[in-house]
Write a protein that binds this DNA or RNA. Structure first.
Lengths: 235, 235
DNA sequence: CCTTGCTGGATTGTTGAACAATCCCTACCC
DNA sequence: GGGTAGGGATTGTTCAACAATCCAGCAAGG
């Protein structure tokens, strides 16, 4: 962050712009809790007691509270005044809204990506990785690649705010994925569909690709809603 | 949040459904600071010192820190480790990204709104209110109505997540508005354009309305970028 | 003159303990 | 059974302290 000396060429320092963002204890605590949640070690709906978490992490209660506030803003956790924080439960209503949002925004990304060879190449690479992981039976990696694929799609919109929206959206989706037992059943069908979509985009068949994308998202939504089943009738 | 007694008729209690959502001290503190910032009482770039804020609000430092964390997630404030929190400065780059996002999403809302008479009526009402406020010289209300208009537009998408994105986006925009001296110059030109757009939508001339919307957003972006001027050369 | 290194003071980061406020469960009473 | 009064557990908030870090200013050196 030092100012550049006036006579040194600006270009020389252009490369090292990013220094490895140190993080505070509360952020590390948030990271640890976040990992625990996304890996499914804590079930949705479960309560996180401040004192217990503080003891487990070896930090103070105040620090844990700051971490909770961050996670709450990310939507991973819900904060109820005087009752505590609970691992977020995504409802059927949430899933429907998430997929509505995806069906709204991802086509925009698809059309933008179609105009950029670099974007298409990136999509191709990701699908290739997914296919390799699927062949190896590594379904967790397949899931990661699927998310990367769709992130990359909306990334073509070139809007960091839309990117952020999608990051948050996938964080919520990961919570919903936790209710599905088989990672294979969850991710396998979509490798081929992503490949198909990429091929269509590469061939500039944008409208067809959009149709395939919409159908993909409808199917994925239905699968998750079915898995959620009658689990939350009222609310 | 009390449960309704089972034998009392539901209708009798329908009116008082919303009890004034109690909030914690830290949330009230966040509200107070937020108001101060959005009203322009604190300049962008200014530092908020924990102890000073705590003393001013009559709360403890820890509570202020929790409030800061919330405001930081909202994008109103920036947190620099070991340096403190500063009122967010929206850069030209930010403004460009915000308007890119708007030009991407608002057309989706426009097309959705065009299919719904109720949405069109709402837009009409908002514009009418804006015209009245403009006639009265109440430019702050005109600004509020303008935001309401475009919020209502994207609201037709029916996605709470997109709605949330726009709320955050307008919160950032309000920070950018602070650099413009004259509220009149900022908001006046857009009343007529919103009216024009509403008329087009009402007449089902959706494509024309989209063209007008895009032009509106380009002009608004240019105006703000010009006001930002050479204020932030580097970065 | 410009750079470098140091130093002291100010501010943030984190802790631990304390107490008030609130919630929730249980046992009790009618 | 339904309502109600404890009472224990948990959260909300404060306070005081200390460590870690940053920053401005100054002195030394080229």
């Amino acid at each position: 962050m030092r100012a550049v000396p006036p006579h040194s060429p600006a270009d020389a320092l252009a490369g090292l712009a990013t220094l490895p963002t140190r993080s505070s204890t509360s952020e590390q605590a948030a990271d640890a809790i976040r990992r625990h949640i996304t890996e499914g070690a804590i079930r949705p709906g479960a309560q996180l007691r401040e004192e217990a978490v503080a003891a487990a992490l070896g930090v103070s209660r105040n620090t844990v509270r700051e971490a909770f506030r961050a996670l709450s803003r990310e939507g991973l956790v819900e904060h109820a005044l005087h009752r505590g924080v609970f691992v977020r439960e995504v409802s059927a209503h949430d899933v429907a809204d998430i997929y509505r949002t995806r069906r709204l925004l991802e086509p925009l990304g698809l059309r933008a990506a179609a105009d950029r060879p670099a974007a298409v190449r990136t999509l191709d690479d990701i699908v290739t990785r997914a296919e390799a992981a699927a062949a190896a039976g590594d379904w967790a990696s397949v899931g990661t690649a699927d998310i990367a694929f769709h992130r990359s799609l909306v990334g073509a919109c070139d809007s960091v705010r839309v990117d952020r929206l999608f990051d948050q959206l996938f964080a919520e989706l990961r919570l919903a994925f936790a209710v599905i037992d088989s990672a294979r059943a969850l991710h396998e069908p979509y490798v081929a569909r992503n490949r198909h979509m990429t091929t269509l985009i590469g061939a500039r068949a944008v409208d067809e690709a959009c149709v395939e994308l919409d159908s993909y998202l409808l199917d994925a939504e239905r699968q998750i809603l079915e898995a959620l089943g009658g689990r939350e009738p009222g609310r």
